[in-house]
Design a protein around this nucleic acid. Sequence first.
DNA 1: CATGGTGCCATCACGGCGTTATGGTCCTCT
DNA 2: AGAGGACCATAACGCCGTGATGGCACCATG
Lengths: 205, 205
Amino acid sequence: MARVSDEPDLRRRLLDVAADVLAEEGPSALTARRLTREAGTSTMAVYTHFGGMPALVRAIVADGFARLHARVDAVPVTDDPVADLAAMAAAYRAHALAHPHLYAVMFGATTLGSFRLSHEEQQVGMAAFDQLVDGVRRAMDAGVVRRGDPASVAGQLWTALHGYTMLEQSGLHRVVDDPETGLLQPLMANLVAGLLVDPGGPGAG
Amino acid sequence: MARVSDEPDLRRRLLDVAADVLAEEGPSALTARRLTREAGTSTMAVYTHFGGMPALVRAIVADGFARLHARVDAVPVTDDPVADLAAMAAAYRAHALAHPHLYAVMFGATTLGSFRLSHEEQQVGMAAFDQLVDGVRRAMDAGVVRRGDPASVAGQLWTALHGYTMLEQSGLHRVVDDPETGLLQPLMANLVAGLLVDPGGPGAG
DNA sequence: CATGGTGCCATCACGGCGTTATGGTCCTCT
DNA sequence: AGAGGACCATAACGCCGTGATGGCACCATG
């Protein structure tokens, strides 16, 4: 089969096709044969450009982290640190809801089964986390959150946020989530409230 | 090939083999050929007893929920409701750490990719959640947690616990978790603290 | 301009996967 | 004893990821 065009960046096109297929049909459709057929080439392109399917998926995950970072980074900084934290959490959740399969692969394929992110790729993922750390630091500087280790507090917030996101995508949150009041907002609010009281308490790190 | 024995309960043996293989080699080793070879039969046994691989995995997941329920149910009830909640959280996390692949399949395979639990199986999973609701109710009765909807509060606790468990198994918690102080204990403590203050506040449901 | 080398991809083959159709065996119930 | 059905072994189909092989286009070098 002749090439679809003289498009030079086949690697980029494969990643775009993979992102589309993942978003529309889920991880099970992420096969070398499917992607290369869609891109008008043969399976060998996966190996010349990535080295195999796991490496291609890893590239997809790295892209996902980069976009998540950009999404959270776009949240403006105001003079209300708590509102900023809430806005960052909302942006995070919105990204996960907009790309559910991608989020599942990002935090599911990372797990024991298939592969592990390289150190550099983990750094990219954690850049988004650093944004949250900065937000917590601003809240501490403003006295809205008890002073302590911002990384620990940010880790707690992220943990709760990630847990809610995972449950929401599993569909299990419907069992425990009150659709009237919601669960995420009280969860974050109570966590922030717990971070305020009892100065020198257990939580601020 | 002759049968390994006249063992009648081949279905049970397949489930046991599947649990072993899952625990030792992860979800990617959960193949019909592998399991039936290990059990000394042919792939047809999967179809006569389960109807297919997705149904077999579903049975594994249902078993996992039942065992998780039993594990949390074994936590004794004392006169310290907060300590009971902490003990339940510890038991939950211990189960997840003892069976990491199983936990991943329980909350990962449930997701968009492959299948969905039946309503009845969801009920089994949620029985463990009801235990947590009871624990929260006792804490409310004792005045240790501000009175409100126990299910909402239990949902918040479970969400945080699940988020920590997932991150711990992904290995990403190493990036944000302080090995000296830990992350889960302050997270739960701050959440409980936030549930105490500001009567009539946002969180108690 | 000729030539050699190199990067890239098409084709094909291999083993493994889930699933299905078919046929045989044994158990049970009448 | 005979009929019926549950159960499983075998073989096949179409997928999958991956590796070997070969051809093609391009480019630097003489």
